[in-house]
Design a protein around this nucleic acid. Structure first.
Lengths: 115, 115
DNA sequence: TTTGAATAACTTGCAATGCAAGGTATATTT
DNA sequence: AAATATACCTTGCATTGCAAGTTATTCAAA
């Protein structure tokens, strides 16, 4: 078990969330993710993910000049991307609850009440 | 993206948590997971996981007779399994915070205040 | 005994995805 | 030119969840 295994299928949703906030470029996202607590996420993880999401029509990109280095590729959400993000948020909420249910493991079985 | 992809690297930790509560057998765990909200988790997922965890010394098992069917294989946590569970819980807490940070994405940047 | 269903554990082959390592390219400084 | 930082992309691999199938026990019906 590792931290990275737990991110499978979650990172892409988080990238959608990050992109929703404002236009960002790939290289910048590794810093964002690090700020959020994910640790240092490899570029070998980020770029293939962004390219796939673009291929699927979830994001679009435009190149803009940088003050120090090659052009940056800024990503934005499409309508489809917004919908996918909403669905991800629902899946995440469900997973979060499920896992917390499992690790709760209180001794009182059969007294969950009426929910 | 699918629900199952998001469970990678998380399910094993949840199984450890379930086993900690009390002795359980594999077939029963699919029902438990369903109760917790994971949906119907395949036996093809559960059994290989349990066998690996046993090979790694995280759990032990004893066979006990069933009232209806073949013998059940009840699992318990080893000391190593307890430690692994603690580490999983820490990783999960961190992931949970990181994801929630990422999806928070409030418009007010740089004005988070003191929480 | 045979057939069928429920319980219970295990195996095989496949698909999805994160990542180390490496490659390409631009701008600045020495 | 060489070194450093920025910025993007590709290849090959390991991990892990799962559909589908196998084996085996118990109970019920014929």
């Amino acid at each position: 078990m590792s931290q990275t295994q737990m991110m499978k299928g979650i990172l892409d949703g988080c990238l959608l969330a990050i992109i929703r906030g404002k236009e960002v470029y790939g290289y910048e996202m590794t810093e964002r993710l690090s700020d959020y607590g994910f640790g240092e996420v490899s570029e070998g993880t980020i770029y293939p993910l962004l390219m796939r999401m673009q291929r699927e029509g979830l994001v679009t990109s435009v190149k803009k000049e940088s003050t120090a280095g090659p052009k940056r590729k800024y990503y934005s959400l499409t309508d489809k991307g917004h919908k996918e993000l909403e669905e991800f948020l629902a899946r995440w909420k469900r997973l979060e609850k499920s896992v917390n249910n499992a690790i709760r493991q209180e001794t009182n079985e059969g007294s969950e009440g009426s929910g």
